[in-house]
Computed example of a mutant assay.
Amino acid sequence: MEAQKPNSGAAPAQKKNVQPEGSKVRGIKNAFLVIVVCFIVAVCLFAFWFGHDSHFDEAGHPQDIWGTIYMGGVIVPVLQTLFLTVIVLSVERWIALSSAKGKGNISKFVANVKKCLQSNDIAGAQELCKKQKGSVAAVVSAALVRYKEMDANTVLSKEQKIATLQKEVEEATALEMPALQQNLPIVATLTTLGTLVGLLGTVIGMIKSFQALAASGAPNSTELSTGISEALINTAFGIATGA
């Protein structure tokens, strides 16, 4: 009889294979490809649209906002890459987090699960999780599976069962969190880089402006306006990316 005790203790550990394999929240897995695509789009916009001859007069002065953006210099494509990437990943995160809520209302879902548990209808609660889907439903479903196992277990004490349920919820939550937090550090990094690169472009533009002012004789108004335009355009893109 003593040789069979390890088997009864090992049974709960073997049943952990019932837990979900991972989060099913959709999202962009490789943000590097998004950055590359946004860089290509930014370069194409800068070269073929902002720098098109139709946006400049014969003297090379910008006639509209697009030509003014082109005067911002080579830092503009970099800032546009950061700006476009932040927009794309922000929209992607909004869609992913919306799908994580599931199909129905979370409050109603939780209330319905409570009603099922009060009537000891575990199967009904699990069916609600299947219909709801999303991260919340996945965590609740994993907890219900473990609760059903603990309810049938006559070996563990009440405190051990509660600890097992808490651990199951923590493990199920840990499986969902990477998908929910995916790409958020990249967005935070890009917003910081956008502000810093915009500041760099501002400084470069102001240097060009002061170089035009320091020229011997009358300052070149074209070079002066070019430097100021570069500084302001880069500032605008940096602020937009940070915002």
Rank of each mutant, 00 (worst) to 15 (best):
T195I: 11
L45K: 05
I65A: 13
P6M: 09
V74Q: 09
M177C: 01
K114L: 00
L45V: 11
K114S: 02
S221N: 11
W49N: 13
G104L: 06
C44Q: 08
T154A: 15
L128H: 01
V34W: 04
G242L: 03
K208N: 12
Q14I: 10
A137Q: 03
E92W: 09
F46Y: 15
D57T: 08
K108E: 00
A240D: 05
Q132D: 01
V187Y: 04
Q166H: 14
I69P: 10
S157G: 15
L144H: 03
F48N: 13
F237N: 05
V74C: 03
V113P: 00
V197S: 09
A125N: 01
A163N: 15
A218I: 12
A212P: 02
M71I: 02
V37W: 08
L97N: 12
Q63N: 11
V139L: 06
C44P: 02
Q166K: 15
T202L: 12
Y70D: 11
K131I: 06
Q118K: 12
T226V: 08
G134Q: 02
M1P: 09
G198M: 01
V34Y: 04
H52I: 05
I233D: 06
K130Q: 08
Q126K: 13
I40H: 05
V203Y: 09
G102E: 02
P12R: 10
K114A: 00
Q181A: 12
A163G: 13
D57W: 07
D53V: 10
Q182L: 11
A142C: 08
D53G: 14
K15W: 03
F210C: 08
K148A: 13
G67I: 02
S107Y: 07
Q126D: 00
H55F: 04
P62W: 03
V203I: 15
Q19W: 09
K103L: 08
V197G: 05
G227S: 06
K158G: 07
L213H: 03
E127I: 02
E230I: 01
P6G: 08
I162C: 12
H55E: 07
Q4H: 11
V113D: 00
V78P: 02
V91M: 14
F210W: 06
